[in-house]
Amino acid sequence: MKIQLWSVGKVHESYVKEGIDDFTRRIANYFPVQWQIIPVPKQAATLSESALKKAEAAAILSQLEKDDYLVLLDERGKQFSSPELADFLQKRANESTRTIVFLIGGAFGVDEMVAKRANTVWCLAKLVFPHMLVRLILAEQLYRACSILRNEKYHHS
């Protein structure tokens, strides 16, 4: 199974890039993994919130493959403990999921078209974080889930 981490916005800011890169390298010991940063549309400042979300949705949906398993990160989603996230990953692997895409939407969230396409909606926390920190938290939690699957010492339950 391949893991893709997608985020709408700018490239990783320097204050989180080192951590994101570190955890991404660690995940690569378990699954092939890559980041994809989907740029905000150039005319974003002139678009309404709804129009911006539709433009971002078009970019996201055009890059998704039919069989990709889409996990949308959204505050209205289901919360997982770290062991539950590990079980979730294991189930996707057992189902022979070829690619699982974890998506961090834009500043205003995602258009309903993307939400409807999502196979799972996951809430990292009820708190709201800056997108850059969500990227770091996502990478760390996926690494933690991988280490749980292998009974490694990183996660202490």
Rank of each mutant, 00 (worst) to 15 (best):
Arg76Trp: 01
Ala139Val: 06
Asp111Thr: 02
Thr97Trp: 02
Thr97Pro: 05
Arg92Tyr: 04
Asn119Tyr: 02
Trp35Met: 05
Trp122Thr: 05
Thr99Pro: 03
Arg76Met: 11
Ser50His: 08
Ile20Arg: 00
Leu136Glu: 11
Met1Ser: 13
His12Glu: 06
Ala57Arg: 02
Leu5Glu: 10
Gln141Thr: 04
Leu61Ser: 09
Ser7Asn: 07
Leu47Asn: 05
Glu18Ile: 00
Cys146Phe: 08
Gly77Glu: 13
Leu70Trp: 10
Val11Met: 10
Ala115Glu: 14
Arg76Ser: 14
Arg76Asn: 15
Leu142Pro: 09
Ala59Tyr: 04
Gln90Leu: 15
Ser48Glu: 01
Ala51Glu: 14
Tyr30Gly: 01
Phe88Cys: 12
Glu56His: 06
Ser50Val: 02
Phe23Met: 02
Trp35Ile: 04
Arg25Leu: 06
Ser157Thr: 00
Val114Glu: 12
Asp74Val: 10
Glu152Asn: 08
Ser50Glu: 11
Phe23Gly: 01
Phe88Asn: 07
Lys54Leu: 13
Pro32Ala: 09
Ile100Ser: 13
Lys66Trp: 05
Ala86Cys: 10
Val101Lys: 09
Met1Glu: 09
Ile104His: 10
Lys153Tyr: 04
Lys53Arg: 15
Trp6Ala: 06
Ala45Lys: 05
Arg117Met: 06
Ser147Phe: 01
Arg76Gly: 15
Ala45His: 02
Ile104Pro: 09
Ile137Tyr: 10
Ala51Lys: 10
Ala145Thr: 06
Phe102Gln: 12
Arg150Asp: 11
Glu75Tyr: 07
Lys53Trp: 04
Val134Gly: 08
Glu95Val: 01
Gln141Arg: 10
Ser50Phe: 04
Gln4Lys: 09
Asp22Thr: 00
Ser147Ala: 14
Ala51Pro: 00
Tyr143Ala: 14
His155Ile: 03
Arg117Leu: 06
Thr46Tyr: 03
Ser82Phe: 08
Leu136His: 12
Asp111Gln: 07
Lys153Thr: 12
Ser7Ile: 02
Leu70Pro: 11
Leu64Tyr: 10
Glu65Gln: 15
